[in-house]
């Protein structure tokens, strides 16, 4: 064991970790936003709104993420007519893909709020928007916090897939370091430990939130 290889290359590798975090955070923010819109579309009674959103969700949930990453990387330049960087391309692919998963989480969250809450808000004169904003979404978001945290952890793990389009995120940089140092055991154990610790913290936070929610309701 030569642990020095880790400290020598720590700055390089952790720089990749920062990139992984950035990708995960943008994905969660963007995916959740698009997911909320898709969720409401899926709950709409208008066929022209409902069917496209449903098709979108089923389509992307039926594909491997890595394929979508490839697609967006090779398609984006064709569509936009200019080259898109690896990071931008990864962000688009992740948001587009994860929005489908967030949509289902949000939809379940909205449906977990009883119909009577909507009726109560409507009977006070609130509009659809006001009812959603002040009555339904706060309760729905609270109900879906555990699922959202779990999905966030999964997204963080999946950022490593962006290596296929040359994004130098954390795992890719560990991989590059290994190519230079030929210290696979130490380096990949280190990478595994870091992923494990970060994801465990996420899962723990989720469990605690769930317990707190059970206590309060």
């Amino acid at each position: 064991m030569d642990l020095g290889v880790i400290s020598r290359n720590a700055a390089f590798m952790l720089g990749g970790l920062a990139l992984s975090f950035k990708l995960a955070l943008i994905t969660v923010a963007g995916g959740l936003l698009v997911g909320i819109i898709l969720a409401f579309a899926r709950l709409s009674s208008r066929p022209l709104v409902y069917y496209p959103a449903t098709l979108y969700v089923h389509f992307f949930r039926g594909l491997p993420l890595i394929l979508v990453i490839f697609w967006l990387y090779f398609l984006a330049p064709v569509i936009t007519g200019r080259s898109v960087g690896a990071f931008a391309s990864a962000v688009i692919a992740f948001v587009v893909y994860e929005a489908a998963y967030f949509a289902e989480i949000v939809r379940a969250g909205i449906q977990s709020v009883s119909r009577g809450q909507t009726m109560a808000a409507y009977s006070g004169g609130l509009t659809f928007y006001e009812t959603t904003r002040y009555v339904i979404l706060p309760q729905a978001l609270r109900n879906m916090v555990p699922a959202l945290v779990t999905q966030t952890v999964v997204i963080f793990q999946d950022t490593s897939l962006a290596y296929v389009i040359g994004l130098r995120e954390f795992l890719r940089r560990v991989n590059l370091t290994d190519a230079r140092e030929a210290r696979s055991v130490e380096l990949y154990l280190f990478a595994g430990l870091l992923y494990f610790v970060i994801c465990s913290m996420g899962s723990l936070a989720s469990q605690r939130l769930e317990k707190r929610r059970q206590r309060s309701c």
């Binding site: 009577g116 809450q117 009726m119 109560a120 808000a121 409507y122 004169g125 609130l126 009555v135």
Partner: peptide, 29 residues
Amino acid sequence: HKLRADIGMVFQHFELYPHMTAMQNITLA
């Protein structure tokens, strides 16, 4: 919406907003 504001309604299962205090429930509308 304007018409509903003139018609108060009380439900069998209360339907108070659980994330708001009694005061916030009353003052929302």
